[in-house]
Design a protein around this nucleic acid. Structure first.
Length: 257
DNA sequence: GAACGTCCTACACGTACTTT
DNA sequence: AAAGTACGTGTAGGACGTTC
């Protein structure tokens, strides 16, 4: 395992890795990272009192806000652990950096010359939200097929008890998937087309409700993570790529019981 | 009941303009 | 000139009613 990571990392900083290898590389780094975040970061810094003593917002405007915030914090924690792993193995040949410009993507893995070798978009999804409507809306035209991956993580509140008996809760990441961004975007675009829409380089268009022959700009539904793969394609998973199949296994974990 | 469509909110800024 | 007000923008998300 460790050896595989080292081989892949070396290929990456020598610019010899393809997108499947890049996806695998990030995937292999995730389990121990998530384990660390769940065992140390989250119970230490995201802990709060019991739901009864310290309730979560129920007002939807607060809900949206705290989920966004928690997602960002988890992205920070996860990315920091990934970076400490690659720092140990590759020193300054590879590093995981934040993209500080407020735009796609979230992170670059940079090589020794600080050139981006991998571009990462990270999404943290709350299992308890009504419809997991985190979105992947990046236009296909902005995606670099050979470099871009999306990391999705599912999290939920976990109830626990301190040694002194105090009841508490903190978020735990229970699932993840790493997918080439281009594949996910293609799947989304295909879904838009199957619904009668059109994908341009600069916008996603969907049929108007009253008058389906007329197209209008998508309002943000196309990228919602549970809607990404069109239902007709979901019925025939063997037609889909391995990556998309793994993506569907990930989203299945969110389906309401 | 799942899938889809509509409309809403927070944040972290920004600019343009008015009041003190 | 400084402080305050009003509204704008892009990126994060959200609930919920309607349709299939």
């Amino acid at each position: 395992m460790t050896n595989r990571i080292e081989i892949l990392g070396k290929k990456i900083y020598n610019s010899q890795a393809d997108i499947d290898e890049i996806t695998l590389f990030i995937s292999l780094l995730m389990p121990s990272t998530i384990d660390k975040v769940n065992k140390f970061f989250s119970p230490r810094q995201l802990i709060k009192r019991d739901r009864v003593l310290e309730s979560l917002p129920t007002d939807k405007r607060q809900l949206s806000s705290y989920r966004t915030r928690l997602g960002t914090i988890l992205e920070y924690a996860v990315s920091s652990h990934i970076d400490s792993l690659i720092y140990k193995k590759f020193n300054s040949n590879l590093r995981l950096t934040f993209v500080v410009a407020n735009q796609y993507p979230d992170f670059f893995v940079r090589d020794q010359f600080l050139n981006p070798s991998i571009r990462i978009e990270m999404k943290a999804v709350d299992a308890d939200s009504e419809e997991q409507s985190a979105r992947f809306e990046v236009l296909s035209s902005l995606i670099q097929e050979e470099k871009d991956v999306v990391v999705l993580m599912g999290w939920q509140w976990f109830s626990d008890e301190l040694d002194n008996g105090v009841k508490c809760e903190y978020p735990k990441i229970f699932s993840f998937v790493v997918v080439p961004a281009a594949e996910l975007a293609n799947e989304r675009d295909e879904s838009v087309r199957l619904r009668g829409g059109r994908v341009d380089p600069d916008q996603i268009l969907v049929p108007k409700k009253g008058n389906p022959s007329e197209l209008k700009k998508d309002e943000g539904n196309a990228g919602k993570i549970l809607r990404l793969v069109h239902k007709t394609r979901r019925k025939e998973p063997f037609m889909l790529s391995q990556h998309i199949q793994r993506y569907l296994q990930f989203t299945d974990k969110f389906k309401k019981k």
